[in-house]
Amino acid sequence: MAIEIMETGLATSIQDQGRVGYYNVGIPPSGALDLVSAAAANVLVGNDPSAAVIESAYMGPKLRFTEPSIVAVTGAQIPVLVNDQEMPLWESFAVQAGDVLSFGILQGGARMYISISGGIDVPAVLGSRSLYALGAFGGFQGRALQSGDVLPVGVGNGRPGVVIPMSLRPEFSREVDVRMVLGLYDYRLTKKGLSALLDQPWQLTTVADRIGFRYDGGALDWVERIQPFGAGSDPSNITDAGYPVGSIQVPGGVEPIILHRDAVSGGGYAMVGTVISADMDLVAQCAPGAQTRFRPVTLDEALEARAAARNRRTSILRILD
């Protein structure tokens, strides 16, 4: 069983639930940017939630199945077609040998996940099948997918007609609140700089990929100081340090960047807060132009949000029960 890539779509790669435990040597978690949508895609086709799926951004790939199978598409709101017939999202369906799956025009969200019963069977590297493109390993041959690639598929036991109920699917908006915990080097911002970050919406730029999401909207002021030894000369520089996944840095005081799951693990820019784990999937589903407010929450609120997100995930994983 295999999948042939006929057209790649955009930023199409193999991802699973990520690679844990190598951040101390600069290997980021990788994995699906919208983890819950990827897990849901797997559950629909009878896979373990951590199986490998195909992730694309904005434009879906076109692919052909070599044998009958069960597939599902989750994530962004986008028409999905089999041989030009529209199929439902968030629902498993059967495909026959030679069927071609393709996509229409994106209507909401940003990233879609294609699962197939049995999972994409590329070799696991350091415990994960996820592509880490900067390191050129994982995924399919350590790179994004190209037309002509033939992806091996494992043995599955999925069935068609399994549905994730509407209430468990994400909703997409062009205006989002992203919750974050202030801290890290936020003391480097002036009061005015901090208000500039929090009191106005920021617009997501076209730099919005697996590494980071960059926002446009204004400039932030830093507290004047003589830079410490080892830090760079710009007031936004620090002595190079580890970056939390989801941390927000503001190089030069303009265009805040949220680091996502393929980001650099450290560097010399001051971080002023970190997006809470529950909202990383939400960020992943934002497309350029999204009006974004950074909303500070406490650690306890972040943990409550995490618990709520976990409940939704658990409900999704139990739809077959």
Binding site: M180, L184, S247, S277
Partner: peptide, 11 residues
Amino acid sequence: SWGGDEHLVVQ
């Protein structure tokens, strides 16, 4: 300092 709900950073 907390880096969200998954990180602790010690400067």
